[in-house]
Amino acid sequence: MVVWDEDGFQGRRHEFTAECPSVLELGFETVRSLKVLSGAWVGFEHAGFQGQQYILERGEYPSWDAWGGNTAYPAERLTSFRP
Rank of each mutant, 00 (worst) to 15 (best):
Q10A: 06
L34G: 00
D5A: 11
F9I: 01
R13L: 05
V36S: 00
L34I: 06
M1G: 00
L24Q: 13
R77S: 13
G39P: 07
G68M: 07
E60Y: 02
D65M: 12
V31A: 05
Y54F: 13
P62W: 07
V23C: 07
T17S: 14
A75C: 13
R58P: 13
Y61Q: 02
A75V: 14
G69H: 11
S22D: 15
F9C: 02
W64C: 14
D65H: 10
E19A: 12
R58C: 15
D5I: 03
E19H: 08
I55A: 13
H46Y: 07
G48R: 10
A40Y: 09
C20S: 01
E6S: 12
G39H: 05
N70G: 14
Q50H: 03
R12L: 06
F28K: 02
W67C: 04
V31E: 00
K35G: 01
T71P: 09
V42F: 06
N70R: 15
S22V: 00
Q52H: 09
M1R: 02
W41Q: 01
G43W: 00
G59S: 02
Q52N: 11
P74W: 12
L37M: 10
G43M: 03
E57D: 12
P74F: 11
G8D: 15
V23I: 15
Y54T: 09
N70L: 08
Q53F: 12
D65V: 13
D65F: 08
R77Q: 14
F9M: 03
G11F: 02
R13S: 11
G68W: 05
S33C: 02
V3T: 05
L24P: 04
A72M: 06
R32Q: 03
E60N: 14
G69M: 08
T17E: 08
I55F: 10
G48M: 10
A18W: 11
V3F: 02
R77G: 10
E60V: 07
A47L: 08
G59P: 03
Q53D: 12
G8R: 09
A66F: 08
G27P: 05
S33E: 00
H46D: 12
G39L: 01
S33K: 00
W4L: 04
V31G: 03
D7R: 07
W67D: 04
L26F: 08
F28R: 00
E25L: 09
A66G: 06
G59F: 00
P21W: 12
V36H: 05
V23Y: 03
S22F: 02
K35C: 03
F16Q: 00
Q50T: 06
W64T: 13
G43R: 02
P74R: 14
A40M: 09
Q53M: 07
F9H: 02
L34K: 00
R58L: 12
L34S: 03
E76D: 09
R13C: 13
T30H: 15
N70Q: 10
L56D: 02
N70T: 08
L37V: 10
V2Q: 05
S33W: 00
A72W: 07
G8M: 07
D65C: 08
V42W: 05
D65Q: 15
L26S: 04
A75M: 13
E19T: 07
V42S: 04
E15F: 11
P21V: 14
G39Q: 03
G11I: 00
S63W: 03
P62F: 10
W41M: 00
Y73R: 13
E45G: 03
P74M: 10
Y61F: 09
Q10Y: 02
P21I: 06
G8Q: 13
L34Y: 02
W67S: 06
L78S: 02
H14L: 14
M1E: 01
G43K: 00
Q53C: 15
G59L: 00
V42H: 05
W67T: 06
T79F: 07
F16A: 04
G59D: 01
G27S: 07
E25F: 13
A66M: 09
